[in-house]
Structure formats: C-alpha cells, structure tokens
Design a protein around this nucleic acid. Structure first.
Lengths: 159, 159
DNA sequence: TAGAATGACGCTCAGGGATTTTCAGGGGGT
DNA sequence: ACCCCCTGAAAATCCCTGAGCGTCATTCTA
C-alpha cells in the first residue's frame, strides 16, 4: 500500500524519464485533480521529495496561468559533484543526519548499498572510539564524522 | 528455551531466505502483534541483530504509511576462503600490510576498487587522527587499524 | 487608457491521525 | 554483579487536509 506521496513522486519521476529533460513543468491543480487530493498535497510532495538535497530545484508562479517547474540538477564536472557533497555534509553531521544523507546518495545512485554499508561501519566505529575511548563531546564527534564522511565521499566521486 | 529476540531474528532471516531477496520490508506493529509483544521489541531485535557490522542496513519511516526495510548487503561466500579474514588481519596491522591485503581481496573479486578505496580512506583518516590528535603509539594505532579493517571486511563478506 | 475589480491560480500553516523511535527502568539468567 | 531481554510511556516524524492568504493575467470602468 504505497502512500499517495510516493505515487505522486513516482509520477513526476516518470515525467523526467519520458521527457529526458532536465526540467518538468506542471500545473498544481491538474495534478491534484488527477490524484484526487487537495492541491496543497502537491506542495508536500515537492517539499519532501524534490529538494536541493536530492538534486532538484523548484520554481513556480501564482495567479492565472500559474505553473510549477521542477529542475533536475546535473553535475557535468566531477568537481561540481565534490562541491555539492561538501555542501550536503557541511562542517558537522550527526549520525542520524549521515544516515539520511547516505540513503539519499544511494537512491541517486551515487553510491551502492555496499558502499553505504562500509561508510556506516566506519562512522559507527569512529563514533564508538571517540565516545568511549576518548570521551569526546558530541559536537567534536560530529565534526569528526563530517570530516571522515567528506573524505570517503570525495574519494568515490573522484574515482 | 529460545528468547523472543532469537525467534524474531530467525523469522526475519527466514523472510530473507524465502524471498531470496536482498531486501525485506515489514511493518513494525504487525510484527509485534504477530509475536505478541510491544512494538519497541522489534527495535531491540534490529539494533542488536541486524547491524551494519553484520552486513545489514535498516531504513525506516515513521507516521502514516510507515515501514521498516532491512537490506542484506554482505556477499554470501559458502567457501571458507573468506572465513580467514580474522586470521589474515590479525590483532595488529600496519598500513602497508593493509594495502597489500586489500589489493589481494580486490584481485580475488571480493571487493570492488571503489570499496577498497573507501576502506583505505577510512584507515588513513583514523591513522591520522590517532597520531596527530591523540598521540597514540604506533602499536595502538595498528591495533585500531586492524579492528576497523576487520569490521569493514566482516560487514561485506560475513557468512 | 490608467486604475480597479475579478477570477484563477499557487503558498503557508496549523492540526489530526498513524506510525516508529527513544529512553528509563524492571526482570531473569549465568 | 553483570549482561541481555523486554516493557510502556513520551517524543518525534510523516502524511494529508482545509482554511486563509498572496499573486498574476485579464477584464471592466470611468
């Protein structure tokens, strides 16, 4: 039993595949009517699924002849992807945030499941050592997590 | 007398065998009801049994249409050419030895080039932190290297 | 023909229902 | 005494709705 959000997400993803374009345009109220829901449900889908973290930008216009355009970001040069990674990770990152980020990267096929597994094992071990052996504060652990994660992801993107 | 945790663990393992899939999806509250326990018992089973170190990743979502998905990502090698990882690595391992070992594993197609890269980056970062930040002796660094390496390899190839 | 009114959109936000997660603690075996 | 199980209440998170508001193009009006 898939959620309505998931169904609409898949539908939009399908539009990208069919069009083979980097941009998809749609009308919010038509889409809502197509799936028999209130229009604001579309906003929820966009806000939760087509985010910058997942490589999308959304712009829209209200009023008569209003529209919603979804732009899929493409990184043509490896260094762009590296910069993107740096932004996503940032200077500090909790374990929970790291998990979510890694799942996104796997979903975007930037890493495989096994690679995610390796990264999580490394992060967990570092976390464990930093906590129980060196008694580091949560903040300093998050900084180390971010640094290790960035190094590992950089190595993959550049390979 | 098998514990409830063990029973639930076996049940999930059974699901993997039946489906012959790398992913099993379930609803926590249904599983809890099936075994007549509180839902949080499922969390305990997952936390203690289906860990990254054992080759599993767990993704979940709360709220309506919530779910729990368990991914099994370790290669299944029936032969025991893999079971000697503990011996291969041992209690202590220098960086040079680690590199040789990893290259060997890659040549035997047990890990990919990207996976080897990932492991080497993690080892190097740990080495760096242990040396310049915590001023650990070479011996203790090698012990930590060995432990991290074993965990990462076990997660990939555990039987 | 400039400015006001209108109609047709999209956006925000609070809230409710449905799950899962967390966490402190109790019980039992070795 | 310790570690593993197991429980239950509180917190967090997710989906979805609906009312109210903002904004744009078009049409009307003086």
């Amino acid at each position: 039993m898939a959620s309505l959000t998931k169904i609409i997400e898949d539908h939009i993803t399908q539009l990208f595949q069919e069009a083979e374009e980097e941009v998809v345009a749609l009308r919010r109220k038509d889409l809502a009517e197509l799936f028999g829901c209130v229009p604001s449900q579309i906003n929820y889908v966009l806000r939760s699924r087509f985010t910058p973290e997942r490589g999308f930008l959304v712009d829209s216009q209200r009023g008569g002849h209003g529209y919603i355009r979804i732009l899929r970001l493409a990184f043509r040069f490896p260094e762009d992807r590296v910069n993107h990674i740096e932004d996503l990770v940032g200077e500090t990152l909790s374990e929970a945030e790291a998990k979510r980020l890694l799942l996104n990267l796997q979903h975007r096929q930037m890493i495989t499941g096994r690679e995610r597994l390796l990264i999580e094992v490394a992060l967990r071990y570092q976390e464990e050592v930093a906590r129980s052996l060196f008694d580091l504060s949560p903040y300093r652990r998050d900084v180390m997590n971010a640094e290790l994660l960035k190094r590992m992801l950089r190595s993959l993107v550049l390979s």
